[in-house]
């Protein structure tokens, strides 16, 4: 493993012929941009054949998760055949079940079903990244501090975030506007305290120390109300 050993490689099938491929692609992008931006990298699957030796070594130099849009599992097969072993293989229909049936291929008119599907798969990928990283850490792999590297793929960069004042500290939460937008979509279905639901959603993307949960709730709720006000004014 190289110096990037604690960056997890995510290989999406990106299957162009089916909606599951679009979901796998968008969910992978979401993990790269928002959920685990400092811990993940990617590569176009066909580069294993069309690329050079360095690209074919990808799965030998990164613990790798494949994300396939259908049961044919081309990403898993292609990665293991042309590059190296896969740590975890995810399959979109196994994650979504029948929920994937209403999805479409183009991003031009994504529906609520598509949006929910992408979030669900992205969250599953993020959990798999955490599992792989925990395994790599326990195996003694060199750790790279979060935020030390911003390279996820050829041109990707993390989504803009927001700074909150929490317990007297300034805390940067990457992608917070997108998380708020997602919360707004879910809010209509949510029961109970909005602050607790907001904290539960943010914790998927950002570590929250147990002792600071109440402070996070207050700060997040205030920031979300400001966000909602701005959205309503648009």
């Amino acid at each position: 493993m190289n110096a990037d050993a604690t960056k997890v490689g995510i290989i999406s099938c990106s299957g162009e012929a089916l909606a599951g491929g679009t979901i796998s692609r968008l969910a992978t992008r979401r993990v790269l941009e928002l959920l685990r931006p400092d811990r993940t990298v990617t590569l176009c699957l066909p580069l294993f054949l069309a690329g050079n030796e360095g690209e074919r070594n990808f799965a030998r130099t990164h613990p790798t998760i494949t994300v396939d849009g259908c049961e044919k599992q081309c990403a898993k097969w292609g990665t293991e055949t042309h590059s190296g072993p896969v740590s975890i293989a995810l399959v979109v229909p196994e994650i979504l079940g029948h929920a994937a049936e209403g999805c479409i291929r183009s991003t031009k008119a994504l529906t609520q079903d598509d949006t929910e599907a992408v979030w669900a798969v992205a969250e599953r990928i993020a959990a798999a990244v955490d599992t792989v990283l925990a395994s790599a850490t326990s195996a003694g792999a060199e750790s790279t501090p979060v935020g030390a590297g911003k390279a996820q793929c050829a041109c990707s960069s993390p989504l803009p975030g927001a700074s909150l004042s929490i317990g007297g500290k300034t805390v940067e939460i990457p992608g917070l506007p997108l998380i708020f937008a997602h919360f707004a979509e879910r809010a209509a279905k949510a029961d109970g305290s909005p602050a607790a639901a907001l904290l539960a959603l943010v914790r998927i993307y950002h570590p929250v120390p147990p002792a600071e949960q109440d402070a996070y709730k207050d700060a997040l709720l205030a920031e979300y109300q400001r966000f909602a006000g701005m959205q309503a004014a648009k």
Binding site: L45, P46, C74
Partner: peptide, 25 residues
């Protein structure tokens, strides 16, 4: 997206696409 515009719209009855990953496989 250009592909979908052709295969799902402009020439939906004359063209099709396939998963490049299937060729890799």
């Amino acid at each position: 997206e250009a592909t979908y515009r052709v295969t799902d719209g402009l020439a939906y009855d004359k063209t099709a696409t396939l998963c490049l990953a299937l060729l890799v496989k």
